[in-house]
Design a protein around this nucleic acid. Structure first.
Lengths: 163, 163
DNA sequence: CATATACGTCAGTCTTGTTGACATATTGCC
DNA sequence: GGCAATATGTCAACAAGACTGACGTATATG
């Protein structure tokens, strides 16, 4: 039973294969978020704070509306965690120069430090998985993950870095 | 940019590669859960109900404590959704024969139907991604996903089906 | 018989998402 | 210049789903 036995019922195998993928997503995502969650809880923050810190770190001087497009949550939901992060000095808001209605977000030094700390566990987890699986597997992983996400989200991974 | 360009700064590329993986997990997981969530909301249920229905369907006659080990939530959290699912006729509880303290869980016909409906969108999403990426990519995907999850969870995917 | 286990339940709290309504500053257009 | 649209903020109420802590009951096991 270590090898799924090649049987007379390919439909069953397909079903099993698909269910395993579904479960892998569940387990991998949960374990993947576990470590940062623990650190966050210790700071009185939640996973939502991590996401904001992460994407502001990833896209310095991002506008609020751009951040909303990435996170796909309501501005009210974002507002709660964002204003908390600004109040506690992890993020600063700069008024936009071209459009002065915009509040462009940027991590403070304190924010950069906490981002590094939070993301480090995840980075190491991925690095280990990548190293152990090998370069070819990584290509496969990326291909499947891109296929799983909605088409619009895929755009973030081919060009990347053109603004 | 389809191939990561071999540059003068391999550390930057590595960092970029790892961050892309982190973001792929975020986007893929969110999009992956989106469709069932919509169906569930329509039924007055949430994602937690889906998880319970899914794993009870996957492991018929599973005990409550075994289910708790898979989900890694508290019995109080499980209780809320489980008793709701029992009350509304999606799951039945059979008293264990060997250990009569156990409540062994099983989907009703109604439960099977809703499970099929909920998981169908996810199955199709995975099937499409697998088909488009190819068999080799699937192997890579599995290898990386297994590497990302905590070691204890990996055990569910090599043997699988020995109880 | 006593203790441990499997399960259920009541009560309160927190995070994070939602909707709806309304306010303010700024931009862009006629 | 005036006015509609846009970017953002904020108040209020609500729901899902996780948590802790405490307590109760049925059954198993030594």
């Amino acid at each position: 039973m270590t090898e799924l036995k090649p049987g007379p019922n390919p439909l069953f195998l397909r079903e099993e294969e698909l269910r395993q993928a579904i479960e892998m997503l569940f387990f991998a995502y949960r374990d993947f978020t576990g470590e940062p969650d623990a650190i966050l809880a210790h700071l009185g923050f939640g996973r939502a704070h991590h996401r904001v810190i992460y994407f502001v770190g990833r896209h310095p001087m991002i506008s609020v509306s751009e951040l909303l497009l990435i996170l796909k949550i309501t501005k009210q939901s974002l507002s709660r965690v964002l204003s908390q992060l600004v109040r506690e000095g992890f993020i600063v808001q700069h008024q936009g120069t071209e459009d002065r209605r915009q509040r462009l977000l940027k991590l403070t030094d304190k924010g950069v430090e906490i981002e590094r700390q939070l993301t480090e566990a995840q980075r190491q987890r991925i690095a280990r998985a990548y190293r152990e699986a090998g370069a070819e597997a990584v290509q496969g992983f990326r291909a499947v993950m891109l296929g799983i996400m909605d088409a619009p989200d895929r755009g973030r991974f081919d060009r990347e870095r053109d603004g």
